[in-house]
Amino acid sequence: MTSTTDFQNETANMPDDSFLQGVKDCVPTLLGYISIGLAFGVVGSASGLSVFEIALLTILIYAGSAQFIFCALLLTNSPASAIIVTIFVVNLRHLLMSLTLAPHFTRYSMLRNVGFGTLLTDETFGVAVTKQMQSGKLHGKWMDGLNITAYSFWILSCVTGAYLGQWVATPEKWGLDFALVAMFVALLVLQLNSVGKSKIMHYLMLIGYMVVIMYGLSYIVPSHVAVLLSTVIVATIGVVTDK
């Protein structure tokens, strides 16, 4: 199995910037995509969506949390405007992720940049920033390999889930919903691992702020808004307290 720690070791026998390396670096995230995708398909069909509608949602929206919330709002008969506004806010964190990655791809054409942005997800963002931190540079072909693998598996899993929807009840029972959290934990550890000893205390302090601010904000705003606001606040604290 490939892990992100293999990034540096594999550069010797494999070009770091290849499409295939991007595919390989996507592999550890696939369990997350597959389990959440299957779960979404099941939830989608339970919410009364047809397989065609689930496929359309998956291909066009391509964001787990937004797709789940779409189903939830549909079930409560929310008006279209409310659904669109909520989906916008839920996914606004991608603006920050995209802003973080974009400076590393300015040497590529506009069209390719739109492509990188279109296929951006929490998972590919996590893998890409970790790669960037470890190897210093991001390559277009590598990014395409990562993105296209993730996108294909997401579509396949969601549609499979939609078909399975009639038979499988709760995917949570198998612990598969935790795949995503476990992945964020591992990506966070890998990030901290590569910031260096001198900065680690500063980063741990920022995570402390994140816990407090996330908790506080959870009382007043929905959790997806809390994610967005606390990230903006704590990144600013990071700049101010940086020596």
Partner: peptide
């Protein structure tokens, strides 16, 4: 701004973890 962006990965990843640890 670049400095600010350098803090985004750790912040957003921890936010996504913390979100799941809380029951709202």
């Amino acid at each position: 701004v670049l400095k600010w962006l350098s803090f985004i990965p750790v912040c957003i990843l921890s936010a996504l973890v913390i979100e799941n640890l809380l029951d709202t």
